[in-house]
């Protein structure tokens, strides 16, 4: 029986790279995002990698969208084995310049999306009797501070701790569902280049803070997400898995 994995935010960056890595682990890919053209491109890359995939366009911050998506998935698939909540947002702004609207927008995109995703992930796994694994993409910024990123740090701290509690609840389900947060350091993706620009100074910022003197890539995170999604991590739940090139350790 083919196992299936849902990946939100699969239209770019860590989400798309994770979808492609999960193909190599044998998962059917249920990709989601807001941009149908980029979603189609993800499915095309999944198929080119020898896998099978489908794309659903919806807003991960909308509960009614999640409910409709969950119905569609459980109607079509006999198991939901993994859910990677990768969709998220980021901005950098000093606190005096950060409006309440800015904060709320980020909180909705980064926290409410994960809360809804985990809730409907639990429901889909319950309804298909799947011993699934949920991976919430958080950030190193949820564990340590980053200047001019108070809203993002607060949001990712919320995602990290929410995932621990969700792990306790998932362990009460039958079959049990695992939940972990995956906390990347600064990774060279569109999310970063969109906020900071794309030039040598930004690349240096991405790299120089790391103990390992190299740029972290979406593929680095995709590998860790795949580890957490598959049975190799059968006993891993409630952890915050840090993949940051040693950035947070010093």
């Amino acid at each position: 029986m083919t196992r299936s994995a849902i990946v939100t935010g699969a239209t770019s960056g860590i989400g798309r790279a994770t979808a492609l890595r999960l193909v190599r682990a044998g998962f059917h890919i249920i990709a989601t995002g807001r941009n149908p053209e980029r979603g189609a491109e993800t499915v095309r890359q999944v198929e080119a990698a020898g896998g099978s995939g489908e794309f659903h366009s919806f807003d991960v911050t909308s509960e009614s969208d999640w409910a409709a998506f969950a119905d569609a998935v459980t109607g079509r698939h006999t198991s939901v084995d993994a859910l990677i909540n990768s969709a998220g947002s980021f901005f950098t702004k000093a606190l005096p310049d950060t409006s309440l609207e800015d904060f709320r927008e980020l909180w909705t995109a980064d926290v409410e999306s994960v809360v809804l995703g985990t809730k409907y992930g639990f429901r889909m796994m319950r309804d298909t009797r799947s011993a699934g694994s949920i991976v919430n993409i958080s950030s190193l910024a949820g564990l340590i501070g980053l200047e001019d990123c108070a809203a993002y740090c607060a949001a990712k701290a919320a995602v990290t701790h929410f995932s621990r509690v969700a792990a306790l609840e998932g362990a009460q389900m039958n079959p049990k569902v695992r939940v972990n947060s995956l906390n990347p350091g600064v990774i060279y993706t569109e999310m970063i280049t969109h906020a900071y620009g794309d030039n040598d100074a930004v690349k240096a910022f991405v790299m120089d803070g790391n103990a390992l003197q190299r740029v972290g890539t979406a593929e680095d995170i995709a590998s860790a997400a795949t580890f957490l999604a598959c049975s190799a991590s059968r006993m891993v739940t409630g952890t915050a898995m840090l993949v940051d090139g040693g950035r947070g350790a010093d």
Binding site: R164, A167, L168, A171, G185, A211, L212, R214, G216, T217, D220, S223, A224, T226, F227, A232, S233, R234, M235, V236, T237, G238, T239, M241, L242, V243, D244, G245, G246, A249, D250
Partner: peptide, 29 residues
């Protein structure tokens, strides 16, 4: 062993100086 082999493999090549907890959620509460 599965976790150790992941940490040995090149797929964890951006991981250093971390603690990987594998405890079935034991330390959560």
């Amino acid at each position: 062993a599965e976790s150790i082999l992941f940490l040995i493999s090149e797929e964890s090549s951006f991981m250093t100086a971390t603690q990987m907890v594998v405890d079935g959620g034991w330390s959560l509460t």
